[in-house]
Design a protein around this nucleic acid. Structure first.
Length: 281
DNA sequence: CGACTCTCCTGGGTGC
DNA sequence: TGCACCCAGGAGAGTC
C-alpha cells in the first residue's frame, strides 16, 4: 500500500544512502520483478554493472535512480508490498528477495523485497528527466508542474465518480485507496459523487485535503498497515494511528460520532462517514 | 475513444 | 488441526 508519502520516505532514504555509489553487480532472483524490462533479466543486470547512482527522484508512486553515463534510470514501483531495503552484504537473504544490487564500496546492498510481486523494477531512458514508461502519468500534487486549474477542468469533463478520478494516475498521481478515502472524508465528499457536479471551489478544497493528509502522513514517516511498508532501514511509519476512516469500519467518526461505513468499490473497499459524506442521489 | 472490469500475486485471517 | 475461502490493491490489458 505504499502511496505518495511512503514512496517519498523511501526516496529520501535512497538519496541519503545510495546516491553517489557505484553498482558492482545486480542479481535478479525472481523474473517477475523485471517483467516490464523487455530485454530480460540478464540484460538488466549487465547494464547496471559499473553504473553510478546520481540521485533519487519520484513522481507519484514511481521512484527512479538516474544513472551516470547516459540519460537512463533504474525505475521502480513498489506495488502493494514492495520494499527497497539497505542491508549489510553478508546478511541472510530475505524470503521474498527479488533483486539485489551490491556496490563497489562494500557498503550495504540495495535489496528489492516484494511478497505479492505487484511491484517491479526496470532500466529505462529518461525523456526530459522523466522515465519513458511513465510519461503518460500526471505530475503529483506536490510538483511545481501540477496545475490545479487544469486538474479541475479535467475532472469536470469526466463522466465518472470522484474517487475513480482521484485514483486515475493520468489526472493526478500518487493517490491510492488509503489517501483517497482520507482526503474525501476531510473534504466531506462521498466517493460516488459524479465529477461533473463538482464546483471549482469544491475541487480546490479536495486538492487541499489531498495535500493535507499526505503532508501529515509524511511527517509521521508514512502509513504502515500490515508491516509490509517500511523505509529503507526497515522501519514502519506511524500514520495508521492518525487515519480517520480507512480501515475503521464501525468505529466512530471523529467529527460526528457516526460509525464509519465500509462499502465495496471497484472490487475493493471504500470507507466513509455516512453523515459527513452524504451519498449523492 | 472513454469508462469500466478483469487479472496478476501471496499469505494472514476466518469459519467450519 | 486441516482446508477452503476471502481479502488486501496498482495498473496494464481487455471489453463494450
Amino acid at each position: 500500500m505504499p502511496e505518495l508519502p511512503e514512496v517519498e520516505v523511501v526516496r529520501r532514504g535512497l538519496a541519503q544512502w545510495v546516491a553517489g555509489r557505484e553498482i558492482a553487480s545486480a542479481e535478479v532472483l525472481h523474473p517477475r520483478a523485471v517483467r516490464r524490462h523487455v530485454p530480460g533479466a540478464e540484460e538488466f543486470a549487465a547494464r547496471l554493472k559499473g553504473r553510478v547512482v546520481v540521485s533519487a527522484e519520484r513522481r507519484g508512486k514511481y521512484l527512479w535512480l538516474p544513472l551516470s553515463g547516459a540519460e537512463e534510470a533504474l525505475l521502480a514501483h513498489l506495488g502493494m508490498s514492495g520494499q527497497l531495503l539497505l542491508v549489510e552484504p553478508g546478511a541472510p537473504l530475505e524470503r521474498h528477495l527479488r533483486v539485489r544490487l551490491s556496490f563497489t564500496d562494500g557498503g550495504p546492498d540495495l535489496r528489492f523485497v516484494d511478497q505479492r510481486t505487484f511491484g517491479h523494477v526496470m532500466l529505462t531512458s529518461l525523456v526530459g528527466g522523466v522515465p519513458e514508461p511513465i510519461a503518460h502519468i500526471a505530475p503529483d500534487p506536490f510538483e511545481e508542474s501540477f496545475d490545479d486549474a487544469r486538474f479541475a477542468a479535467a475532472l469536470r469533463r469526466k463522466r465518472t465518480e470522484v474517487k475513480r478520478a482521484l485514483l486515475d494516475q493520468s489526472l493526478i498521481s500518487g493517490v491510492g485507496n488509503i489517501y483517497a478515502d482520507e482526503a474525501l472524508w476531510l473534504a466531506r465528499l462521498h466517493w460516488a459523487r459524479p465529477t461533473q457536479t463538482l464546483t471549482r471551489p469544491k475541487i480546490a478544497e479536495l486538492l487541499d485535503a489531498v495535500r493535507e493528509v499526505m503532508i501529515a502522513a509524511l511527517h509521521q514517516g508514512g502509513t504502515s498497515f500490515d508491516s509490509l511498508y517500511v523505509n529503507v532501514n526497515g522501519e514502519s511509519g506511524y500514520f495508521d494511528r492518525s487515519l480517520e476512516v480507512y480501515g475503521r469500519r464501525d468505529q466512530p467518526c471523529s467529527r460526528c460520532g457516526t460509525p464509519i461505513m465500509r462499502e465495496a468499490f471497484m472490487n475493493r473497499s471504500s470507507y466513509s462517514c455516512p453523515r459527513c459524506q452524504r451519498r449523492p442521489r
